[in-house]
């Protein structure tokens, strides 16, 4: 080796031949530039413009698009809906995935069969999952809605804002539980069994073993999943919203990313839509930074 240095560890790993490194980076960078940087910069530019969809008339309007957004009650409602939706979705997804992961970790017979079944929803396209949920819980024809009514529960996501929000939260969580589940199963597998066995010998039940031993040990994974769940809730739940409620009733499930689509691609208000996506991007960025700064400190990586 040229320098003769033999340090180990991530920080010391480097390529001697910079051209190889550049070539290896190129595909990833090209994708980022094409699908992230160029669209982001164009969105940023569009956010300061008032333009007709064909781009024939373009007026520079400074912060008008942002100003009218912040002044609109509709937009503020959408912000709150997004906050509730992502928090509930995050908590539900993690909780169910954790229980399932811990449970399959203890199952001896047919473990891989259970795992297969639990992973299935991830293979279903979001739009199809959404239509499935919308149909099952449709108050007029859905079998599950019928069962709810039989049980004396007045269920009507077409007219009750809370029901609609609950329905999309359930659908979005259901779709994402598998993702969290895979990571948690892997994390549990990587955990030294001796610790759990020792606790079991000392008489700790499954619940205590989970909360006092397993959970702290899989902290980094949980933290990672929290971040990913937020990203999912912010950006990837679009198809589910579109299929289940179309943002309704009366905007009750109109989360920010759906509003970006609705205003930009249906209403053709490109300036406002661009301004919204800029705000959304900045807040997702800020949220991730905050999480890394404050939450990550409490995560213990030294397992």
């Amino acid at each position: 080796m040229a320098g003769g240095r033999r340090e180990t560890g991530l920080k010391r790993a480097h390529f001697v031949e910079p051209r190889v490194a550049a070539m290896l980076l190129l595909p990833q960078l090209a994708i980022l530039v094409l699908f992230f940087f160029i669209p982001s910069i164009r969105a940023l530019a569009q956010a300061f413009l008032l333009a007709d969809p064909f781009g024939t008339v373009v007026q520079f309007v400074w912060f008008d698009n942002f100003r009218s957004l912040l002044a609109s009650a509709d937009y503020r409602d959408s912000v709150w809906t997004t906050i509730w939706f992502t928090l509930a979705q995050n908590a539900l997804t993690l909780a169910v995935a954790a229980v399932l992961a811990f449970a399959t970790d203890r199952v001896v017979r047919l473990r891989s069969a259970y795992k297969m079944i639990l992973l299935l929803p991830y293979a279903i396209a979001p739009a199809i999952a959404g239509i499935l949920w919308a149909f099952l819980f449709n108050p007029a024809v859905g079998p599950l809605a019928h069962m709810l009514r039989m049980a004396g529960i007045a269920w009507n996501p077409n007219l009750v804002a809370g029901d609609a929000l609950l329905l999309v939260t359930l659908a979005a969580s259901w779709k994402h539980i598998c993702y969290d589940y895979i990571f948690l199963v892997a994390a549990l597998l990587a955990m030294p069994q001796s610790l759990l066995e020792a606790a079991a010998v000392d008489g700790a039940g499954p619940l205590r073993r989970f909360f006092l031993i397993a959970l702290p040990m899989i902290g980094p994974t949980v933290f990672f999943l929290v971040v990913m769940n937020f990203v999912y809730g912010f950006f990837e739940t679009f198809a589910i919203i579109d299929a289940v409620t179309r943002g309704g009733p009366a905007g009750a499930t109109n989360i920010l990313v759906y509003k970006v689509y609705q205003d930009g691609f249906v209403n053709l208000d490109l300036g406002s839509s661009a301004a919204q996506s800029v705000i959304l991007m900045i807040s997702a960025f800020a949220l991730t930074l905050l999480q890394f700064r404050y939450v990550e400190r409490k995560v213990n990586y030294d397992v």
């Binding site: 239509i131 919308a134 449709n138 108050p139 007029a140 024809v141 859905g142 077409n158």
Partner: peptide, 8 residues
């Protein structure tokens, strides 16, 4: 008056 809602 009845609504069909989404999915139907």
């Amino acid at each position: 008056l009845q609504l069909a809602g989404t999915g139907f």
